[in-house]
Amino acid sequence: MVYEERIDRIIKPNQNGEIFLPIAHYALVNSSKKYKNYKTISIYGLGSCIAILLTDSINHIHAMSHVLLPTSENKEASQIKLPHKFVNTSIKDLVDKMIQSGAKLKNLKAVMIGGATIFDNEFNCIGKQNIKIAREVLSSLNIKILFEEVGGKKGRTIIYNIGDDIIQIKTSKDTITKKIN
């Protein structure tokens, strides 16, 4: 795998093999047996932000980002130090990094979670815009969305179990567990 110097990539899991993903950060892992030290990628308190998980199950490459805003339209690409702050640049960066690590574009499938409206009478609909842009960008790259758990009014916590390829999505009300591939 290629390890590039990037401040926004979480490489080291904690001692339990967990990776916690802050906003505007991403993680890229290989789930083949050689890389046993990674167990889960988690995001706590996902509100209007959106989590994008791309997987290539054939080459065992998985990447997830935690994205804040829909588009970087007002900024030049070169000015963006944190591509995973914006949905459009995040998906492109994830795809690039995955391909560099041995994934194939045609194998990529996506899972999308988040984009809730947390405040009532929300002043902006960032969550909804995040979902819309993510769908647009994924379809423009011909990446199939395996499933999405988006919108609503509840914050979510997600735990992606890398080895089993299972994602757990918790809200204060219930927990959903899904096998991805």
């Binding site: 906003i23 706590y44 308190g45 996902l46 509100g47 209007s48 932000c49 804040l68 805003l69 007002n74 130090k81 944190l82 702050k85 809730a116 947390i118 405040f119 009532d120 009478n121 929300e122 002043f123 902006n124 960032i126 509840k154 914050g155 979510r156 916590t157 204060s172």
Partner: peptide, 27 residues
Amino acid sequence: PNVPVLALDSIGAICNSVAANYSELTD
């Protein structure tokens, strides 16, 4: 101030909206 908006959720989810409001141009 505008009419306040309310939320009952985890601090992370609440902070998302605030961060979204203020971080488009700066980090």
